[in-house]
Amino acid sequence: MPLTFTLDPAVDPALHDGILDLWTDVSNAGGAVGFVPPVAREAIRPELVKQLAALSEGRARLLVGHDEDGRVAATAFLTFNTHRLMTHWLWLYTVMVHPRHQGKGYGRDLLAAAADAARTFDGIEAIRLTCRGGLGLERFYGSCGYKEVGRVPGAIRVEPGDDRDDIMMLLPLA
């Protein structure tokens, strides 16, 4: 059964906790969403608060996918670029699908829903994201229409002796 996506849902305590649980579970399953396992909810909470502050300030929009049981199963934050010469594209951050739903095509669905949402925003012509090298994520994003437009070798230090490339990807919306 497909996920049900909602753009800009009301962030109540249940959604807050659902996103926090999702982020923790994805991180602890090895997902490249800013943390390295093992990680506790309390370590992730400040980052979630920063994302939610961007929502409340109008700098970002939230896309949430719920599964058939109503649980938070996927998220992405669409963040507007504030540089006056770059407002024609936005950033896609914290792209996550719960590990229990991996392999069902929900990642593709999430990216398609994010692109559909971005097309409704005035003046937005492209989506940009970065991903951690060494996991094949650039192949996944490439299969969804994103093009690699840059790479910074060794920019992400997962742990001492394990540096990964920071890969920049772009999806034109036209």
Score class of each variant (00 low, 15 high):
P2T: 05
T4K: 03
F5H: 01
L7A: 07
P9S: 09
P9L: 09
A10T: 14
D12V: 07
D12M: 02
L15E: 08
L15N: 05
L15F: 05
H16V: 07
H16M: 00
D17K: 00
I19R: 00
I19Q: 01
L20M: 10
W23T: 10
V26N: 10
A29V: 03
A29M: 08
A29P: 00
G30L: 14
G30C: 13
G30I: 09
G31W: 11
A32Q: 04
G34E: 11
G34A: 09
F35S: 12
A40T: 13
A43P: 01
I44R: 00
I44H: 04
P46W: 04
L52C: 08
L52W: 10
A53L: 13
L55Q: 12
S56H: 00
E57C: 11
R59K: 15
A60L: 14
A60T: 14
L62H: 08
V64A: 02
G65C: 01
H66T: 12
H66K: 06
H66Q: 06
D67R: 03
D67T: 06
D67Y: 02
E68Q: 09
G70A: 04
G70M: 05
G70D: 07
G70C: 03
A74T: 01
T75C: 13
T75F: 04
F77R: 01
F77N: 04
F77K: 02
L78F: 07
L78I: 13
F80N: 03
N81H: 14
H83D: 15
R84C: 14
R84K: 13
L85G: 10
L85F: 14
L85S: 13
M86W: 14
M86T: 13
H88C: 02
H88Q: 04
W89E: 02
L90R: 05
Y93L: 12
T94E: 12
V95A: 06
V97R: 02
H98E: 04
P99M: 05
R100W: 00
G103D: 05
K104G: 08
Y106F: 15
D109P: 00
L110H: 01
L110C: 00
D116H: 12
R119S: 08
F121T: 11
D122N: 12
D122S: 13
I124P: 01
I124K: 09
I124N: 03
E125I: 03
E125W: 02
A126C: 05
A126S: 13
A126G: 07
I127G: 01
R128Y: 12
L129Q: 09
L129H: 10
C131M: 04
R132K: 08
R132F: 08
G134N: 13
G136K: 00
G136A: 03
L137V: 01
E138P: 09
E138Y: 09
E138C: 07
E138F: 10
Y141K: 04
Y141M: 09
Y141S: 06
C144A: 15
C144H: 06
C144Y: 05
Y146E: 09
Y146F: 15
Y146M: 11
E148Y: 10
V149H: 14
G150K: 14
R151M: 09
R151L: 07
R151W: 11
V152R: 12
V152N: 10
P153C: 15
A155C: 10
A155G: 11
I156S: 08
V158W: 07
P160D: 12
P160G: 02
G161S: 05
D162N: 13
D165V: 11
I167T: 09
M168Y: 13
L170S: 11
P172C: 02
L173H: 01
L173T: 04
A174E: 07
